[in-house]
Amino acid sequence: MAHITQLSDAIRDAVRDGDIVALEGFTHLIPYAAGHEIVRQAKRDLTVIRMTPDVIYDMLIGSGCVKKIVFSWGGNPGVGSLHRLRDAVEKDWPLPIEVEEHAHAGMAAMYAAGAANLPFGLLRGYIGTDLTKHNGRIKFIDCPFTGEKLAAVPAHRPDVTVIHAQKADRKGNVLMWGVVGVQKEAVLAAKRSIVTVEEIVDDLQAPPNAVVLPYWVVGHVCEVKGGAFPSYAQGYYARNNAFYKKWDDISKDRESFTSWMDKHIKGTKDFAEFKLSLAGQTLGGK
């Protein structure tokens, strides 16, 4: 049942050390503000799931919050590598990281299976590829009707899913539009959920067939204006491509990453202060 809270309280309550956490968003509506708060509260030993871990997962990994990552494409879209993910995989910094790697179609099927309360997702995929040699959770089964060989992947059941959306109403019904990714499935597959929104309004004015998560399937709802920056919220602000490019420099070495995080994330009390801190020197940086 939805309750409207402050983001810091929501993270304190719903994200626990050792949890399986999915912060979803497919290039759009990425829950950055919530990710920052997980770093501020120094959560530890998290298993983080995401189809497209990007800069926010780089921040979590470099800050030592993550024990294991489950993903299908880990990069800075259009820019290049995630340097903190690479440093953890290649050199164990700041901690060794366990990797469970899939393809997008497999991850989508895993979330859909979780939402449907099925034990596994089924797809025509992975056949003949090397991922199957390194990920024991990808199995193959024979179709009982045709005999066709199909891939089976276990359902995602996160302890907590965190997403960002455009609007909620005062009851906690959540509305999102544009590229909606796998967020609905990720929330329905999870035990607990946190939804940050651009604004809380009296009336969602949602057209029929809109993507609405009813108040009784979501947990914490928090208003965080601009909370998807540097990704975007359609109808509110555009993707800040310049920041994604800038992140390449900030994250390239451990020292510049750490000092940037200390100053702009750990040194600020919330997302509003973070935005002010960034504005102080245009785009942050070294």
Partner: peptide, 20 residues
Amino acid sequence: YQRPKVRLPGAGGAQEIAAS
């Protein structure tokens, strides 16, 4: 695979695009 010289982003949608 466990300790690569260079870790690239990974499959994303590519393997099912290539298959289907």
